[in-house]
């Protein structure tokens, strides 16, 4: 099966460390790979206006987001020499300290993996219609704003 087939990126809830470990383990049979690079986005317990973020509730324009993820995937394979790439982003509530974004790229040598990983993360932040509602301990909320 082609590594470039269309996949579903959006998943319900936090991305478990065990899932990430299993993803790494699955690559042990791919012995042309010499470099993996992984980016994990973790929910921070930011303090905003004196209140502490407990979780982020993610929503998305799902049909458009999946299309954008696919475009980013195609652009990344066109721009870098990669063996494979896997991206998962959470929907729904993800608690502080849990993982909401998992980007995993693999290549023969390190330069492509490093550069592609950064490219994918920046493209997701800029172009994928996803929003995060930061939930505080008193059940009030604010809306997440992405920074550099």
């Amino acid at each position: 099966m082609s590594e470039k087939k269309k996949r579903k990126v959006l998943v319900s809830g936090a991305i478990a460390p065990e899932f990430i470990a299993n993803s790494i383990a699955k690559h042990s049979s791919k012995t042309t790979i010499g470099a993996h690079d992984i980016f994990l986005g973790q929910v921070r317990s930011d303090v905003i206006g004196g209140k502490t973020v407990q979780a982020i509730d993610y929503t998305a324009y799902e049909e458009m987001a999946e299309e954008k993820f696919h475009e980013i995937r195609e652009a990344t394979f066109a721009k870098f020499s990669l063996s494979c790439m896997h991206v998962y982003h959470s929907l729904g509530a993800v608690k502080a300290g849990e993982i909401s974004l998992f980007v995993f790229v693999s290549s023969t040598h390190r330069a492509d993996a490093f550069d592609a990983c950064r490219f994918v993360v920046e493209e997701i932040k800029a172009n994928v219609p996803i929003w995060g509602k930061e939930i505080f301990e008193d059940a009030t909320h604010s809306w997440k704003v992405n920074t550099n």
Binding site: S100, V121, I124, K125, W131, V145, N146
Partner: peptide
């Protein structure tokens, strides 16, 4: 047609 506020993925 859809209206989208600034994106905040990641």
């Amino acid at each position: 047609v859809a209206l989208l506020p600034p994106f905040a993925g990641g």
